[in-house]
Amino acid sequence: MVSAIFVVLLLVIGIYCILATYNLIRVLIGVEILIKAVTLLIIAAGRQNGNMALAQAMVVSIIVIEVVIMTIAVGVVIGIHRYNNSLDSRKIRKLKG
């Protein structure tokens, strides 16, 4: 139950972090917090149904995948910064329609 509260808390923080900022890196940090929240949910589920070994295996895989995604994402952000000299998401709205 306690972990469920923390999951919801982390989800709220993550969503707020994504919505409140225009900085691309901060948006990515918000996404990270969201992924952490659901990772915690998996651990809580594993503890609840007594299948902790499987939960641990899943969590380790999720962490690895998340790192890969963030590496690519930060690479893309660096590329955007090269063109704009800024990390402001309001300046990258060329694609419309």
Binding site: L24, V27, V31, L34, I35, A37, V38, T39, L41, I42, A44, A45, G46, Q48, N49, N51, L54, A55, M58, I62, I69, I72, A73, V76, V77, G79, I80, Y83, I92, K94, L95
Partner: peptide, 28 residues
């Protein structure tokens, strides 16, 4: 291309979050 990729990464990550939450509940 970078802008399109960033949008895709962002929405795909949100889909990931929803999906892992779904998996966790199925697992539960």
């Amino acid at each position: 291309g970078l802008e399109g990729a960033f949008k895709y990464i962002l929405l795909s990550s949100i889909a990931t979050v929803l999906m892992i939450a779904g998996i966790a509940l199925f697992f539960l």
